[in-house]
Computed example of a mutant assay.
Amino acid sequence: MSSQLLMIEDDTRLAEMVGEYLGQSGLHVTHRADGKSGLAQLQGPEAGPLPDLVILDLMLPDMDGLEVCRRIRSLQGPAAQVPVLMLTAKGDPMDRIIGLELGADDYLPKPFEPRELLARIRAILRRRTDGGTPAATPALRFGSLEIDRDARTVTVGGQVADLTSYQFDLLVTLAERAGRVLTRDQIMEAVRGRELDAFDRSIDVHMGRIRAAIEADAKNPRRILTVRGVGYVFAKQQD
Rank of each mutant, 00 (worst) to 15 (best):
R71D: 08
R71E: 10
R71Q: 14
R73I: 10
L75V: 11
L75T: 12
Q76E: 11
P78S: 11
A79D: 13
A80N: 07
Q81W: 01
P83K: 07
M86W: 02
L87V: 12
T88E: 03
T88C: 09
A89H: 08
D92T: 10
M94K: 14
R96H: 01
I97A: 15
L100Q: 13
L102C: 07
G103I: 01
D105I: 04
Y107T: 11
Y107N: 02
P111T: 06
P111N: 07
F112K: 06
R115K: 15
E116M: 11
I121H: 06
A123W: 04
I124K: 00
R126V: 10
R126G: 15
R126S: 14
R127G: 15
G131H: 07
G131Q: 06
T133R: 15
A135E: 15
L140H: 08
L140F: 05
R141P: 04
R141F: 02
F142E: 12
G143C: 06
G143K: 02
D148H: 14
R149T: 11
A151K: 13
A151C: 06
R152H: 12
R152G: 14
T153R: 00
T155V: 15
V156G: 08
G157T: 09
Q159D: 13
V160N: 10
F168G: 04
L170I: 13
L171Y: 02
T173D: 03
L174G: 00
L174F: 08
E176T: 13
A178D: 01
A178W: 11
V181L: 14
T183Y: 01
Q186C: 01
Q186D: 12
I187D: 01
M188E: 13
M188I: 14
M188G: 09
A190Q: 07
V191E: 11
R192L: 13
G193E: 07
R194W: 05
R194G: 02
E195D: 05
E195G: 09
L196E: 01
L196K: 04
L196N: 03
D204V: 10
H206S: 08
M207F: 02
G208D: 05
G208H: 07
